[in-house]
């Protein structure tokens, strides 16, 4: 029975990407006469995109699963990636160091954001606007508006390597699942999700926890950022909180990942969800849908998913209510007999 349930859960988990693959493959084949994945390069692209969106989704999940939506996360990604990359470039270091320095810078920016949050205790969305404006300004000023340019910089090739991307994604996934499942931090996380008040009364330092959440989120988006920047050879320093688009577009992956992860674990869920969604948008690209239309389709599906998520217990509740009504009718009958 137990094994059966595990098998069922595994089936449930992998049904998502599989179904999506089949759907897009069919569409591609009949509409465009080609396969969804026709070569190793397609696999490579899919892996990279999945990796990047999974890492961002992980980053989002740190704060979002405690009910905080940090509007400055995109700005942190920008600041951490650009400044970390600039430091590594300045020091003449090679690929892995770029990753490390970006990660460290991300941690720093995340940490400061978290500190400001627990000190001011302004709602995260409002705080995100203010601090996001500041963070965007930092890399812009430091790079004189140039952003990070990795074109022709030696040693960054490794960052775009498929195996390396997979390795980073796995490291991040393992890191996240370890930290969420095996460490004190993870236990606190679940407790705070359940009830902030009880968690606090039980001696959990919710403030320190929040700072850590912000910090990890900042570090992770910068890991995704540098991989992205290495592939595109650049990351331009944008202003006006435009930086948030990348992060917001991965929210779907995070939410879907949370849903799928209920039956396995969050790490698997997020990766599977990212893969599913990337198969989806890759398929749409192959069908030569313009970028705006792809986005429209994607977001519409997201809305529907959110509606589903908000009402998923509706039927269960209806059922319980019906059972109760039946009980009431029975009671009435008994009373009328009496």
């Amino acid at each position: 029975m137990f094994r059966n349930r595990k098998a069922k859960d595994a089936l449930f988990t992998f049904a998502f990407p599989l179904a999506m693959f089949v759907l897009m493959e069919l569409l591609c084949f009949f509409l465009k006469g080609r396969h969804l994945v026709g070569s190793l390069l397609d696999v490579k692209t899919l892996v990279r995109n999945t990796g990047i969106s999974a890492i961002i989704a992980f980053a989002l999940s740190f704060n979002l699963s405690c009910g905080r939506f940090d509007l400055s996360l995109g700005a942190q990604r920008l600041a951490g990636t650009i400044i970390g990359g600039m430091i590594a470039m300045e020091l003449g270091l090679s690929g892995l160091w770029f990753l490390l320095f970006s990660f460290l810078c991300g941690l720093v920016f995340g940490f400061i954001t978290g500190m400001v949050f627990v000190i001011t205790r302004v709602p995260p969305m409002v705080l995100g606007v203010g601090i996001g404006l500041v963070w965007e300004c930092v890399p812009y000023t430091m790079s004189k508006g140039k952003g990070l340019n990795l074109f022709g910089v030696h040693g960054t090739e490794i960052l775009t390597d498929t195996v390396f991307t997979i390795a980073v994604m796995i490291v991040v996934a393992v890191f996240v699942s370890l930290i969420m499942n095996r460490t004190k931090f993870g236990y606190e996380m679940k407790a705070i999700q359940g009830s902030q008040l009880i968690a606090r009364n039980s001696g959990i330092n919710i403030f320190r926890h929040a700072v850590l959440c912000y910090m990890f989120a900042g570090g992770l988006v910068c890991v995704a950022g540098i991989i992205d920047a290495a592939f595109q050879t650049q990351m331009s320093s944008t202003m006006g909180l435009a930086s948030n688009g990348v992060v917001v577009s991965n929210m779907f992956a995070m939410m879907l990942g949370g849903y799928i992860g209920e039956r396995s674990n969050q790490a698997t869920g997020v990766i599977v969800a990212s893969l599913t969604l990337n198969l989806f948008s890759y398929g749409l690209t192959l069908m030569e849908l313009s970028e705006a239309n792809t986005s429209v389709v994607n977001q519409t599906v997201f809305v529907l998913f959110l509606v589903f998520l908000a009402n998923r217990y509706y039927f269960r509740k209806r059922k319980a209510e019906k059972a109760r009504i039946a009980q009431a009718l029975e009671q009435r009958r008994i009373m009328s007999v009496a």
Binding site: R34, G38, S39, L41, D42, N49, Y282, T285, E291
Partner: peptide
């Protein structure tokens, strides 16, 4: 491929160049 979004253009370029 029209548009100013570089990252989606990259994906499109790659698939077309490849295939």
């Amino acid at each position: 491929y029209p548009g100013t979004n570089v990252s989606s253009a990259i994906t499109a370029a790659q698939t077309q160049l490849q295939n």
